[in-house]
Design a protein around this nucleic acid. Structure first.
Lengths: 261, 261
DNA sequence: CGCGGGTTTGAACATAATCAAGATAAGTGG
DNA sequence: CCACTTATCTTGATTATGTTCAAACCCGCG
């Protein structure tokens, strides 16, 4: 509920975490191998290093408003952010979930088409747009990696369209949990039982916006999955999946989701 | 208003169309300015010309099966194709609508994640994957244009997610008609009244798969829009929109969709 | 003609939305 | 430490929207 003003957050805490990252070497960066810079050689990395800067956002803060001018692009270094679209009457749909290493912004376009909101505290590695675009024309590895990442996002968006268009509420919840289990780096796996557990970093409302449901339906279906033994809950947000196979089955997917294989 | 080639599937010309295109010069190509080759200079175009070949598909034919090896990529030259995903129990969701100039295939990946089906007769300008990928690394204009097109598709997919997740059946139909009116090159506009009219090249079932509805609901909502005077029908497939603004309002969009200026 | 794909329409039904009331948990300030 | 506040979540009752099942229609075509 704090600052609504996009960047330049003046809170001392924000500065602290910022300072932490300001001294980081690209070589030591936690997202070095997955972000837009993944394929860069040392020269290219140096060029990026020269124009990069870090920014941090507090949980709840809006990073960019839909329609606003965007003078930077960047990668999520830590934390979670969401891309959402909102209709005039307030109905909102999440259209992207940004985890560490995901890219924000669109080279070649000025305005953002979506609201970008920090769900947890977020640190971003940013580049002013113009220098980044110039660099991109000179360094094919960046352009190539960005194409690859965009194609991956397109695949994810299309998988999500199947979820939104054709799955039941229960399948939707199971799908979301599978996706989080697949992508969240902070999940823990019990070697003996194979049980997977993780923290849900989304509120029931955010999950509802993700899945095209109401928050009440989300709550009911989570309870139902718990009662069926598909998941276990400690508190409201910590989820344990005793058997991933079972969860994936509930999601209606034939593929194994990449976690087990 | 003449739709490029194509749709008259029953005629012998449909078979001839392959031969017709085999001799085509890139410079005379109807999709030259919009396809993946849009930004190419004459040298690059020559290189593409050297490796291109045309293929045609009849209405209803499957171009690629989900999971199949894909040894070529290419552009739709004429006709309409769909990308669909299907669950084990048969529920299907369309995840892409391919119109002339749209790109098919994913450089850097072997299998197709989706079924690609020709909805009308389709002609494609194809490249074997390996030579195309090689060419792409050497000609930045192709890679750049492909990135641009992929980003556009991602935007379209996200707009579609809002439709699937949050819109009512009536709004979904109105949204689909707006999208077709916006993208279909073969639509005609009455200069005096501003009325727009076009042929629906999709069956009710295909529309249902697009919108995450049943074909019965699609049929009902089209009837309802007709009764409200938002659209007029001649036969089952020819649609006239007397007032685009009205249709866009029914779609629940605030933006004008780009058609009216 | 009659056949079949595509379509329309009706009636009963199911699923998720809506409206409403509480429960839980984490602060906040006295 | 406790009362109070607030955000988040759960659960219940009712309703609305779209689905399902079923029948019939339209129209081009053999």
């Amino acid at each position: 509920m704090v600052g609504i003003v996009g960047f330049d957050s003046d809170q001392p805490e924000a500065r602290m975490s910022l300072a932490q990252f300001q001294s980081i070497e690209c070589a030591d960066c936690p997202i070095r191998h997955r972000a837009v810079c993944a394929r860069c050689d040392s020269d290219e990395l140096e060029a990026l290093d020269a124009i990069k800067f870090y920014r941090s956002y507090e949980a709840g803060q809006t990073v960019i408003w839909s329609g606003d001018q965007m003078n930077f692009v960047g990668s999520v270094v830590s934390g979670i952010a969401t891309l959402t679209q909102t209709m005039e009457d307030g109905r909102t749909q999440m259209v992207g979930l940004l985890l560490p290493s995901d890219f924000v912004g669109r080279p070649g376009r000025d305005g953002s088409a979506y609201d970008v909101v920090a769900t947890t505290d977020v640190v971003m590695c940013c580049f002013r747009k113009k220098p980044f675009e110039d660099l991109m024309t000179r360094t094919p590895h960046i352009a190539h990696r960005l194409l690859e990442m965009t194609l991956d996002e397109l695949d994810a968006a299309r998988e999500w369209m199947l979820v939104l268009g054709r799955k039941t509420a229960r399948e939707k919840i199971a799908s979301l949990l599978s996706i989080i289990a697949r992508r969240d780096a902070s999940l823990s796996v019990d070697a003996a039982s194979g049980a997977v557990s993780f923290d849900l970093k989304l509120t029931r409302e955010a999950m509802a916006d993700y899945l095209g449901l109401t928050l009440e339906t989300v709550s009911r279906q989570i309870s139902a999955l718990r009662k069926s033994g598909v998941i276990e809950l400690e508190g409201k947000r910590h989820v344990t999946v005793p058997d991933m196979r079972r969860l994936i089955e509930e999601a209606g997917d034939d593929s194994d989701g990449g976690v087990l294989g």
